[in-house]
Design a protein around this nucleic acid. Structure first.
Lengths: 156, 156
DNA sequence: GTGAATCAAATTGCCCGCAATTAAATTTGA
DNA sequence: TCAAATTTAATTGCGGGCAATTTGATTCAC
């Protein structure tokens, strides 16, 4: 004698397809890690009164000096729809300058003003603070960085 | 007679500190990869008329059936400030239902409506399409996923 | 040299993401 | 029991991101 136990179809739990499970995908950990990272920066950046993308712009300007909006966009993978208002906010706080390139009036050159330059000193401690927070060995850190770089290359 | 040629201090290239270089950090590749990933989903999700975070919400509902706003927030690491308007948009399109839990009127239970349930079928091909796009070996994929999960755990 | 094509930035409009606050329900503990 | 603390969503306000369009400058092709 065999008894079949028939579980009724529960429409509130419809076909949990493993392909579509959050934890089996790359997308969600990436999305979550990126936002958590930004949040980890937040208290440090708050002291400089910078948002995370504003900080990225300043990193590039500290490293390269003047850059056009286009060059900033290429390096950060952001377009002028994002950068223009962001840069105007930095300009209003006298951290950066914005001027048309006289040799090509289409381009806008972004430069550092003294206050923006001065912020670099305050920012020096930030990478180390984050490193501590992450608790990754140098090998793990490097492996992850390399993999992400490869991913970025693959997708861009 | 000696002529000194004094190179003026070039304030446009100020002290490129390696610690502060974009490419030496984890934060930027993570930020860029996350946005590029979302962009890679975009054409696929456009056919479902979903944004990426809306898709994540539906993934959870397809997997778990009904969830409260709080539970969605815990799993996606998003707060009601993000979720409430997003869920209202899905409700307006009759993809999900929103109702107070009668046993605890503070909670709002989100459920799938038929149109939302039906979308799952159209979404089934999405993970495979991305997998193809990424061109990662199963080992690389798994390694990266594990490292990101660890990072998320470390930061949350 | 001139009209067409291209390019760079700005603008518009929409949707996140999140800090901070508010409102309402529930739990708690004296 | 009942006031205080806690919990859950909603709301507000602001700064990204990004697609799509517009404006103006430059380059290209003929």
């Amino acid at each position: 004698m065999v008894t079949f136990i028939v579980t009724p179809l529960d429409m509130s739990k419809p076909t949990p397809n493993p392909l579509l499970q959050l934890e089996n995908q790359l997308c969600f950990p990436l999305y979550a890690a990126s936002r958590l990272f930004t949040k980890a920066y937040q208290p440090l950046l708050q002291e400089l009164e910078l948002t995370y993308p504003q900080y990225l712009v300043l990193l590039l300007l500290w490293e390269h000096g003047e850059l056009t909006v286009k060059e900033l966009g290429e390096r950060l993978l952001l377009d002028s729809g994002t950068l223009t208002p962001l840069l105007k906010r930095l300009e209003q706080r006298a951290l950066v300058s914005r001027r048309r390139d006289p040799r090509d009036e289409r381009s806008v050159v972004i430069g550092l003003l003294p206050a923006g330059q001065a912020l670099q000193e305050k920012a020096l401690c930030i990478p180390a603070a984050l490193q501590t927070r992450l608790q990754l060995s140098p090998e793990e850190f490097e492996a992850l960085r390399a993999q992400l770089k490869q991913l970025v290359a693959q997708l861009s």
